[in-house]
Amino acid sequence: MILSIASGKGGTGKTTLAVSLALALDNTVLLDCDIEEPNVHLFVQPEIRNEQRVEVPAPRFIKERCTGCGKCVEFCQFNALALIKDEVLIFRHLCHNCGGCTIVCPENALPAEMVEIGRLYKARGLGGIDVIWGAILPHQVRGTKLISEVKKNANPSAITIIDCPPGTAHPMVKAVDGSDFCLLVTEPTLFGLNDLKLSVETLRLLDIPCGIVVNRSNLGNIELIEDYARKENIPILMKIPYSREFAEAYSRGTITLAQDSQWVAQARQMLQTITELRSHPQRTQQTQQTKRT
């Protein structure tokens, strides 16, 4: 089963939940697809077994061959090229590495060469779990490529837990796509509710069933989330209250949730509920009733 953990914005406790579930449940693999800010590995004391460069083809300009015809500039959909005097400038941070300019140039003045966009790490972490994450280089636009590389490590015979990027844009969709179930982590605040609504809309478009986990459930106003969940027929599967002690431990790089036997029991119960929700299509259907087109 692929269980993804998402939230409309960062800082809601997505990573905390992903790491804690990976530790609390049996037979888990933990994938961190939040490649712009991969933080899972900070909490699992990983022993890195494999580090890999992830590369994509990128154009390189060869001035001697260029006739200044401008066809490449005209083609590029991402405004990543400019012809200044008789030289083509490539704005690397805008280039999507589509390969179009390489094809379109009649003089072969923009041949493709492989460039690194980030790294893929495979490690064994706390409790012997496999932890895989990607780290993108700054100002790189090909994050989704790296996300696919991380996702190739999903294990169908285990519970694959995916920590998704925040938001509802392309990277989040790429990470969550193909999941069997998605846990949406939120906070009982107006920000939390607003971001939750956007996430739910996105998951409905993707046809992925979801449940809600309310973090810092005792700060703010829990009714905000409860009312919304009731109206939309989405189960609230867990509430995690704020504890100063926990926050301080977290600040030092320790997630203590999975050391609490009561919480571990809750996590197992939640997995049970998720399995049931998935095997009862009616209930899943219900949650998707208001699906928008």
Binding site: E36, N39, L42
Partner: peptide, 17 residues
């Protein structure tokens, strides 16, 4: 910034950008 281990890394990334 937030004074947590992950917040520290997030800050370093923002600064390097």
């Amino acid at each position: 910034a937030e004074p947590t281990v992950s917040g520290w890394h997030d800050m370093l990334r923002a600064i390097s950008l």
